[in-house]
Design a binder for these strands. Sequence first.
DNA 1: CTCATATTTGAACGAACATTCAATTATGTG
DNA 2: CACATAATTGAATGTTCGTTCAAATATGAG
Lengths: 177, 177
Amino acid sequence: MKAFWEHGYEATGMAEIIRITGLNPGSIYAAFQSKQDLFLAALDLYGDFNRAAVERQLAKHSNPLEAIRDFFRQLAATVAGPSGKRSCFLVNSALEVARHDKAARKLICANFQSIEASFRSTLERAQAEGDLAPGKDPRALAATLMVFIWGLRVLGTTSPTPAQTEPIVAQVLELLK
Amino acid sequence: MKAFWEHGYEATGMAEIIRITGLNPGSIYAAFQSKQDLFLAALDLYGDFNRAAVERQLAKHSNPLEAIRDFFRQLAATVAGPSGKRSCFLVNSALEVARHDKAARKLICANFQSIEASFRSTLERAQAEGDLAPGKDPRALAATLMVFIWGLRVLGTTSPTPAQTEPIVAQVLELLK
DNA sequence: CTCATATTTGAACGAACATTCAATTATGTG
DNA sequence: CACATAATTGAATGTTCGTTCAAATATGAG
């Protein structure tokens, strides 16, 4: 998973995976049909970690809107930090693989939709509690936040500073006011 | 350029480029040092096209804010259309190549910054003309719009419908009010 | 311990990879 | 036309790619 995440699908050779895992080719091919199959399993594993991390973040504060704000403030820091260039394995794969591989696209979309649903329900909770204006559309807002997350991941590959990422996040949080 | 755009750097073989161009290996290597060199030239060419297209769009309307609104409405349609999965060659390369290749990163960043500057000056013009509220920060807004563009490109790889992309763009345009 | 079943081993496979270069053909000048 | 220079040709290079498989080893039940 780490190898595919770091170098991408095409740039990662089976030889490297064999070296990293310490397994022999035969053992790997006994467990996975092909490199592509192994990649999908790695992507799926990452997706589970990712989804769990997002849900943990959103459950961190009792105030739903504050949880979202905190999520994005943290994302601004991550993206500007040393791990920003690593980006998100799902986003990387959306652009490198999902465009041509249907199975990968399906997996990635499902994960994105799950996270979007978490944001949506958090926004709905905020609206029910009166923190989010009644006129706002949680569905459209959640979809917009997702787009924004992906955009920040792209920004991360350009080695931005916190001084660059923070005002951007501040702008997005304007949408929640 | 089209081959690298469509399949990415790693997945595009020199054999395919030889086939598409109708040139022989020797001729290509007489003009370009290596596959990487050729890729950078392709990326640079795309960058010029892209920058020109954005500036054409922003100059389309005399009203600067309307030009930006039109740009994003058009982007929403493009991303939801058949060419949406192709995404943007610069964004694709930011995630696939720029993370490890310094030359590519520099080229991509320069192009992004140039486009961001166009948005910023357009926003400043809108502010000078009284269309954009005096309290808004054109610099932060321009950076935020860039992040949204990138995010929309990622969204494009998930085969979205116009019904999905349009409300998102509507949200973004809220920031300009 | 015995033996059938699983698992692991690592050498070997053909295919595809980026790249090279001596031979050939085209070009432009006088 | 003659001739120096430039460009093109395409077969061949060694390497690395994903993948296979027969042989060797480990495992667990009786």
